[in-house]
């Protein structure tokens, strides 16, 4: 394959990120990288906006992240592209912020914690019933706000907006209760699993 026909690039839309990467590593044709990276434009723009809060800087950063990705992917083999590109984007934005504010910002060092992605399947070995029982118990141990938000969001399938209307929490509070609730639930589950094993 010398050049991909971009008029028909939709015909490659069924390929997973990993398949596109494998094809790139097989023939080192940058067109595969183009197809892969363009899937992430909107997400990377969003990540850069979250950190930089400036549209022009965010757009420039996305371009720089792409350049870095193209260079690095030509040098090294990447397995989990999604997590990798997210880490590249975060690190780039944090460097930008450091250059902007100096190295002493506490918020930046707090953000340096590794992103939590790609841990799916770690509990696959557990028997479902046992897990459900442990989860029900753990959920009951959460504080009321986190418990309420998790139940409304995951079990009653309410949107953030509906939860704010039902509970009187702000949107940020709802997101925070869900995120913290999930984290605490995992901690409680891990403790229970360690005890039972």
């Amino acid at each position: 394959m010398s050049t991909l026909n971009f008029v028909n690039k939709d015909s490659y839309s069924h390929l997973t990120d990993q398949e596109l990467l494998d094809r790139f590593y097989a023939d080192h044709n940058n067109d595969w990288l183009g197809l892969l990276l363009e899937r992430y434009i909107l997400l990377l723009l969003g990540v850069c906006m979250k950190y930089l809060k400036n549209e022009e800087e965010a757009k420039d950063s996305v371009q720089q992240i792409f350049l870095k990705a193209i260079t690095e992917l030509n040098k090294y083999k990447v397995t989990y592209f999604r997590s990798w590109i997210y880490t590249v984007a975060r690190n780039h934005c944090l460097m930008q912020l450091r250059n902007r504010h100096g190295k002493s910002s506490a918020a930046i060092s707090e953000n340096l914690a590794a992103p939590v992605e790609e841990t799916a399947g770690e509990n696959n070995h557990m028997e479902k019933d046992h897990m459900l029982e442990l989860m029900t118990n753990s959920l009951a141990e959460l504080n009321q706000e986190q418990n309420q938000c998790l139940i409304l969001f995951y079990l009653e399938k309410k949107s953030y907006q509906e939860i704010t209307e039902n509970t009187g929490f702000t949107l940020m509070q709802v997101k925070s209760h869900i995120q913290n609730g999930k984290r605490n639930l995992k901690i409680l589950l891990d403790k229970k699993l360690n005890k039972s094993s």
């Binding site: 997400l43 723009l45 906006m49 549209e55 999604r82 997590s83 997210y86 992103p115 949107s159 995120q179």
Partner: peptide
Amino acid sequence: EKLMAESSLINDAVEGLEHI
């Protein structure tokens, strides 16, 4: 929102895009 809650990348992206 379920995808946001399950993926830090998507969550960060949506929160960032909301700033536009």
